[in-house]
Design a protein around this nucleic acid. Sequence first.
RNA 1: GGGCGGUUAGCUCAGUUGGUAGAGCGACUCGUUUACACCGAGUAGGUCAUAGGUUCGAGUCCUAUACCGCCCACCA
Length: 723
Amino acid sequence: MSTELPKNYGAKEVEDKIYKLWEESGYFNPDNLPGKRTEVFTVALPPPNATGTLHLGHALEYSLQDAVVRYHRMKGALTLWIPGTDHAAIATNTKVEKILIKEEGKNRHDIGREAFVKKVEDFVAASRGTMQKQIRQMGASLDWSREAFTFDEERNLAVRTAFKRMYDAGLIYRGYRVINWDPKGQTSVSDDEVQHKPEKGILYTFKYSKDFPIEIASTRPETKVGDTGVAVHPDDKRYKEYIGKEYEVEFAGKKINIKIVADESIDPEFGTGAVGVTPAHSLIDADIAQRHNLPMVQVINEYAKMTEEAGSLVAGKKTKEAREIIVTWLKEHDLLSKEEPIDLNISVAERSGGVIEPLPKLQWFVSVNKEFIIQKSNIKEIDSGSTTTLKEIMRKSVDAGQIDIMPDRFKKIYFHWIDNLRDWNISRQLWYGHRIPVWYKGEEIYVDINAPKESGWEQDPDTLDTWFSSALWTFSTLGWPNEKSPDLTTYHPTSFMNPGYEILFFWVARMILMSGFLLGEVPFKTVYLHGMLRDAKGQKFSKSLDNGIDPIEMIRQYGADALRMSVVVGIGPGNDANFDQNKVKGYKHFGNKLWNIARFVLMNTTEDQEAPLSAEDQQIIKELKDFTADITKDMDQYHLYLAAEKIYHYIWHTFADKIIEESKSKLASDDPKTKASAGRMLLEVLTTSLKVLHPFMPFITEEIYSKLPLPDKKLLMIEQWPE
RNA sequence: GGGCGGUUAGCUCAGUUGGUAGAGCGACUCGUUUACACCGAGUAGGUCAUAGGUUCGAGUCCUAUACCGCCCACCA
């Protein structure tokens, strides 16, 4: 049989054509898959932020997921992979405001809520379109007919419903508490959105006044005008006699009332062993204050400036200026006894980079420790109708083995996070995002899925933390809150979740929380955490280094198949890896090798696929079966990085280098039986190789498969996986 | 301060339950043969970070140490 294949494989032309073929086949949608399928396999795509374009991290993520999805589809499962995008409230809000400031010199407050939201929406619409196109270029076999957006109508309903149910269960509450305030972004942020940066500071040791008996130490003297107590350790002999006493002192032009309290949390070894308690501007001090009933005095405002309450000396000044003024004042009054340099960490908002200022504010929270009765539970070790907490749901879902986190070591990190978890601040003072479904009229409050019908109600101006809507993703994409939705009953819990380890807390944990509370089940069975890609030198990709690599450019140069292999082979779960273009190039060469293997086989194969196999060829087929069994095992265990490498190795160094080389003499044989056997064997090895490689390099395998002289041929993407 | 990961060939990394060290890339030599130079055949190169321990046997298990990296954490 002669061949019409060209000598070299041209990825670009083939890939566009093949993706179109797949999409038109309808097989990305499980409703159209042929045959009776009892097993179900579902993956919810971690929705990329609607803020930009595809980067290499996405390429990695989609390569892994598509491999898993294609494998299970070929194994005969009813396979659904749902696409979508994330409105990414805080990221998008921040990004668009930055553009606005740059282009028009205005911030969001200058143009107003309505105009700003409109700008964001336009921006998002453009980005989403770009990303969808790019994801298709990766070859991702997503069911586009089910595409979702975290901020569309259906997801909006899911968010409001979730809020309402949690509020009714007493798990969402509004409280005046010290929260992380970002003066730059003008919003509160959750504990997880705060990062720590090392900085040199000065520890000042001083007394409030001459008459005050105890020296305290602080790195932020300006906050001390808001002190209402001094805490010491209960066993500290130095201060025992003062415990319980109250003092009125004149400090930096401000009258403050200080009560001396004993608290176990104080370290007698640090500083003077006495802590000035500032309940309004420190989360820790707020806790101490609560234990001892100390009042809260707010001396810093939302713009990181001193309030009127701070006293005439510093009122209206920026915190930094206030600090200088107060240090000078301390010196003038001979109250400062020590100034020593100290290493400390400052808190910074993840998105805006603003320095966090803890402030007391009225905010909405999810209570993670509050007990409630769970109506229906399929979570192991939590019975329906029993009393539980959100924390327990998060813990048990993983601890009892219903959810497996890969690699193992992240389970420990996950548990540690849960143990230290505080209530989740879910309200944001941003404009782009899900508006909190709460309305006020005077003292009255109304919480529901829809606005009250009567007039005179005003909706809460705040929006929800973007992770609130993401947390619903595995089921908000399947028709929830309609609990009878066929998609929901068929496809949830999902099978596989593949986020980066950096969003284990932000997202994975919150999905477990929400799915547990709202559905009484886990959101997914396996969490395969992937690592980060860095550049060839091991540096992070960053705008300032300008070392970014555009995956679309990689696809243009080497083909999507090559890019996919390069980010899968040899990169275990949870491991970071360096991205080297040479690796991509290597897999492009591999594609070409495979192409030429196919050329060779097609030149030599016979139509006669019934020819008896020689003993030698039978042995080759037997080894092929051992090989596919091994690959199947790796695939089932999600050892994709091993499977891909083994397949590569088999095709190049066993199939091409040994089997084909040795077949040449057989094919040249005068014995027609020997010849026919070899031809049949080669075609079989090629066919099987294409099948096992398909999840990793779907385009080239599909293209070659279409050229094979096989009876009853379907698209390779729905052919039976070789067992 | 607490926790985690890494340290294996020039480079990037595998190494599943402990049984004589592996791949890719790179280097070097040779080679156009029923596909492929985006190729083939071959060669060189490692006291598996260090020091102890368990074992008949350790890259693999245990204990320390060093260096690199990451995560968590408001010593006020």
